[in-house]
C-alpha cells in the first residue's frame, strides 16, 4: 500500500516540474486526488452502502453489488435478489411498495441518481415506439409537431401524469406499427382470438361456424376506425417495399431463337439409342438440351456475314489488346511468341 502513493506522487512531481513548478500544497492535493481516482468509483453516501433489505454493509462484504428493478427502482443487494426472487415473481420487500418483481428484470444501475436512471429508461421505451423520421412526414412542420407530442408523452410518463392511459395508447401504437411492418403477424393475431371465444362456442359447433365468417366484416370495420393510440398530422402512409423479384442469373437476358422453334421430340434413327439409354436418362440428361444446342449451333451465325461485318467495324480483327501483354505483342508480330525471355 505504501508504494503506490509514492509512485503516484513521483509521477505527479515530474508532471508538475514540467508545468513549471507549483506550491507544495497543490502538489499534495494532487497526490490526494490521484489516490481517490485509483479507488473504484463508490457512492459517497454511506447509507447507500447498506442494503435496505438485509442491512448488510459493503464494509463487511466488499464484493457486495446493488441492483434495481425498473418496475419500482428500489435498490437491494444481489444476494437479496437471489434469495427473494429465485423462485419466481415476488412482491418488492421494501415497505409500502409491494409491486411484483421478476428476477430477470433486475440489473445494475447505470446512473447514480435513480431519477435519471428512470428517465433514461422511459425515454428509451418511448423512442422505441416513436421511431418516425423526418422523411416520414409531409412537411418539416408536421415532423416538429410530432417531436413535440413525443416529448409530451415522455414527460407524462416521467411525471406520472395519466400513466395508465398513455401507456395504453403507446401499446396500441406499437401494435399498429408492428402490424403495418408485418401484415402476416397481424393475421396470426386474429387466429389467436379464436381460442378465446372457443369457450363460448364449445356449446355448439354450428354456432361457431356462423360466428367465424361474421367476424370478418367486423375486423374490417375495426380496421377502419381502429384506435391506434395516436394520430399525427401529415404522417405519410407507410408504403410496403415491393416484393423482391426472384434472382435472375442472366440479368434479364434471354435467348429467343429467330430461325427455329424447338420441338419436344425429333424422330431420327440415329438418336433412338441415346433416347432409350437408361445411363443417359438416369443422370437427368434431357434430349431437348441436345436438340436446342444443335439447332442453336445450326443457326449461330446464320445471318452473320463475316466480310461485311469486319469491313463495317473498320478496325482489323487482329485486335492487339487481347490476352496477355505477351500474347498481344505476338499478335502484333513485334516479337516472337516468347520463349526468349524477359531480357
Amino acid at each position: 500500500m505504501s508504494k503506490q502513493p509514492t509512485r503516484a506522487n513521483g509521477a505527479s512531481t515530474k508532471r508538475l516540474a514540467e508545468d513549471g513548478g507549483a506550491s507544495p500544497l497543490s502538489k499534495s492535493l494532487h497526490g490526494l486526488s490521484l489516490q481517490h481516482a485509483s479507488r473504484p468509483p463508490a457512492v459517497a453516501d454511506s447509507s447507500s452502502d447498506i442494503c435496505p433489505v438485509c442491512k448488510s454493509s459493503r464494509y463487511l462484504n466488499p464484493n457486495m453489488q446493488f441492483k434495481v428493478n425498473p418496475e419500482c427502482y428500489h435498490k437491494m443487494c444481489e444476494s437479496c435478489v437471489d434469495r427473494i426472487f429465485s423462485h419466481g415473481p415476488a412482491p418488492c420487500p421494501i415497505a409500502g411498495c409491494a409491486r411484483t418483481l421478476r428476477k430477470a428484470k433486475f440489473r445494475r444501475q447505470t446512473f447514480e441518481d435513480l431519477k435519471v436512471e428512470r428517465e433514461v429508461d422511459i425515454r428509451r421505451r418511448v423512442a422505441g415506439a416513436m421511431n418516425k423520421k423526418e422523411e416520414d412526414f409531409e412537411t418539416l412542420m408536421d415532423y416538429n409537431d410530432y417531436l413535440e407530442q413525443v416529448e409530451e408523452i415522455t414527460w407524462n410518463l416521467i411525471l406520472k401524469v395519466d400513466v395508465e392511459a398513455t401507456e395504453g395508447r403507446l401499446r396500441r401504437w406499437e401494435d399498429h406499427q408492428k402490424a403495418e411492418l408485418n401484415p402476416n403477424a397481424r393475421r396470426r393475431e386474429f387466429d389467436s382470438s379464436v381460442p378465446t371465444d372457443h369457450v363460448v362456442l364449445k356449446k355448439g359447433a354450428t354456432q361457431r361456424k356462423t360466428a367465424a365468417p361474421a367476424s370478418t366484416p367486423q375486423t374490417i370495420a375495426n380496421e377502419m376506425n381502429e384506435d391506434i393510440g395516436f394520430k399525427f398530422h401529415g404522417l405519410k402512409k407507410r408504403v410496403a417495399p415491393p416484393p423482391e423479384a426472384p434472382f435472375d442469373p442472366f440479368g434479364g437476358w434471354s435467348i429467343a431463337p429467330q430461325y427455329y422453334v424447338l420441338q419436344d421430340d425429333y424422330e431420327v434413327d440415329w438418336l433412338t439409342n441415346q433416347k432409350n439409354d437408361v445411363k443417359h436418362s438416369v443422370g437427368g440428361y434431357d434430349m431437348r438440351d441436345f436438340y436446342n444446342r444443335s439447332l442453336r449451333e445450326a443457326f449461330g451465325g446464320f445471318g452473320v456475314f463475316i466480310e461485311d461485318e469486319i469491313n463495317a467495324r473498320g478496325t482489323p480483327s487482329l485486335d492487339p489488346h487481347v490476352g496477355t501483354k505477351q500474347a498481344a505483342s505476338v499478335a502484333v508480330g513485334a516479337r516472337d511468341v516468347n520463349m526468349d525471355d524477359v531480357f
Partner: peptide, 16 residues
C-alpha cells in the same frame, strides 16, 4: 432478347 446470331457474335471465333 438474344438471337442465335447475337450469341455467335459474342464468340472469340467471330471476334478474333
Amino acid at each position: 432478347k438474344l438471337s442465335e446470331d447475337d450469341i455467335y457474335r459474342t464468340s472469340t471465333q467471330f471476334n478474333h
